[in-house]
């Protein structure tokens, strides 16, 4: 149906994601990235793993606003809409579980 298709259109706008290390996690040289809004948070995690050179199985914990881990299928667009800070989506990462 046409109406539904309109809502299905992928949001191709870009969101600025800012990565912040927590605890012993290595700091990234560049920590601002533009990520397509329609991506799921899972894609952000995978991107972060690649940038950090993390091997598969290396533990990586990610949080929004030092508060909670979003669902892997939450979209970047939705997380930004609800939890943005000064125009950025702040993603904290840690090699150990930081906030249970």
């Amino acid at each position: 149906m046409e109406a539904l298709e309109t809502y299905r259109k992928k949001d191709s706008s870009k969101i600025i994601v800012r990565f912040k290390a927590v605890g012993n996690a290595p700091i990234m040289k560049q920590n601002f990235y533009k990520i397509t809004a329609s991506n799921r948070f899972q894609a952000v995690i995978q991107f972060l793993r690649k940038e950090l050179g993390w091997k598969q199985g290396d533990p990586l914990f990610t949080y929004i606003n030092l508060a909670f881990s979003p669902a892997p299928d939450d979209t970047v667009a939705n997380l930004f809409k609800l939890f943005q800070t000064e125009g950025h989506l702040i993603v904290n990462y840690s090699s150990t579980a930081a906030w249970g």
Partner: peptide, 14 residues
């Protein structure tokens, strides 16, 4: 359980 707790906190934050 981890995913559940994450959702619980996300809801709390909202």
């Amino acid at each position: 359980k981890q995913a559940f707790m994450g959702q619980l906190k996300e809801a709390d934050f909202l």
